[in-house]
């Protein structure tokens, strides 16, 4: 799969990118803030967009909303976030296709992504 990963924390982005590439065998395009993620996603098509919840310039939720209002509706969006507030989580599930809490288990993250994509409603 061609995956867009938006993550501002360098260490997490390295680990996540390695997981996706080495375990899942996906190709990953990395963006370090919300704004560049939005631009990249509007410029080229992806099979999956992974968004960090809290990023500089634009938050993951804002990126997702702007993508949807710009007509990018077919691409599944999954949030990666360390936020635990019930409201945040319900927003993630409402706007995106799913949500994976940090810290996640890198060995199973690809399987969890597959599971989310396989389920019809998200989550």
């Amino acid at each position: 799969m061609h995956v867009l990963l938006a993550e501002d924390d360098t260490n997490i982005s390295v680990v996540t990118q390695l997981c996706l590439e080495k375990i899942g065998g996906h190709s990953v395009v990395l963006c370090v803030d919300g704004e560049s993620a939005l631009e990249t996603a509007l410029r080229q098509p992806f099979d999956l967009i992974l968004l960090d919840g809290m990023m500089p310039k634009l938050s993951g939720l804002q990126v997702a909303l702007q993508l949807q209002s710009n007509g990018v509706v077919g691409t599944p969006i999954i949030f990666l976030s360390a936020k635990t507030d019930d409201k945040d989580i319900s927003d993630f599930l409402r706007i995106g296709n799913g949500y994976i809490a940090k810290p996640f288990d890198p060995m199973t993250i690809c399987a969890r992504i597959d599971a989310i994509l396989a389920s019809p409603g998200g989550t």
């Binding site: 260490n11 997490i12 390695l18 810290p103 288990d105 890198p106």
Partner: peptide, 13 residues
């Protein structure tokens, strides 16, 4: 959680 994500991920990999 943020630093733990990197630590956990690195160690698991």
């Amino acid at each position: 959680r943020t630093p733990l994500t990197s630590i956990k991920g690195s160690l698991s990999l």
